[in-house]
Simulated assay, not measured.
Amino acid sequence: MGATALQVVVTGVSGSGKTTVARLLAEEVGARLAEADEFHSRANIDKMSAGHPLDDQDRAPWLADIASWLGERATAGETAVITCSALKRAYRDVLRTAGPGVRFVHLAGPQQVVADRLGGRSGHFMPPELLDSQYADLEPLGEDEAGVTLDLTLDATTLTARACAALGLRP
């Protein structure tokens, strides 16, 4: 039997560049791509749109659905890439239940850089006002967590190349 297919979760706060990097990464390696925002319930979207951060109870079914999607990809032997804030280790623990191939690419950097990005973004349900709560919840990847932390101030092409190299992914 061959090597385990990877399921890559691109993590970070809103505005860190998850979607852009995940899209490029999926294209680079021919992986299936999903956006975790698509897994949110209407209630979660309404809550965030109203300027209220989600709590662990709000996130539990969302994370379970993402883990299920990742698990389906793992069972099928597919490499997959998904965006997901996964700010806390406990959230990443849920995602890791999908199988041994789950790896994280965490986009980390200065809050002001992200705030500036969010200020120029339109059409997203996550208001910039919730950025403080995301940074307050943020728990960096632990040394024992499979993945890599990258500097979100780098351009998306460089981030994608570094993610591929760190995870051993090849086109």
Rank of each mutant, 00 (worst) to 15 (best):
M1G: 15
G2I: 10
G12Q: 12
G12T: 07
V13H: 10
G15A: 12
G15I: 11
G15V: 10
G17Q: 11
G17R: 08
K18A: 09
T19R: 10
A22Q: 04
L24G: 12
L25I: 02
E27D: 14
E28H: 05
E28F: 00
A34P: 01
A34F: 01
E35L: 03
E35Y: 04
A36T: 05
D37H: 12
E38H: 14
E38F: 01
E38N: 11
F39D: 12
S41Q: 07
I45Q: 15
I45L: 15
K47E: 03
S49L: 02
A50M: 08
G51N: 11
G51E: 07
G51F: 06
H52M: 08
L54E: 06
L54N: 07
D55S: 07
D55W: 03
R59D: 08
P61F: 06
A64R: 13
A67S: 06
A67Y: 05
S68P: 00
W69S: 03
G71M: 08
G71P: 12
R73P: 00
A74I: 02
T75M: 03
A76P: 09
G77Y: 14
E78S: 10
T79V: 14
I82D: 00
I82M: 11
C84R: 07
S85M: 12
A86W: 02
A86F: 02
R89Q: 15
Y91W: 10
A98D: 02
G101D: 05
V102T: 08
V102F: 03
R103M: 01
R103Q: 09
V105S: 05
H106G: 04
H106E: 13
A108W: 12
A108Q: 13
A108Y: 13
G109P: 12
P110A: 15
Q112M: 12
V113E: 12
V113F: 09
G120M: 07
S122C: 01
H124A: 09
F125W: 12
P127A: 13
E129Q: 15
L131H: 10
D132K: 06
S133T: 13
Q134F: 14
A136I: 04
P140H: 09
G142L: 15
G142V: 03
E143M: 13
D144Q: 14
E145T: 10
A146E: 08
G147M: 04
V148I: 12
V148D: 03
T149Y: 01
T153R: 15
D155L: 06
A156E: 11
A156F: 00
R162C: 00
A163Q: 01
C164E: 05
C164T: 04
C164Q: 07
A165L: 09
A165N: 00
A165G: 00
G168Y: 01
L169K: 00
L169Y: 01
R170S: 09
R170T: 14
P171K: 09
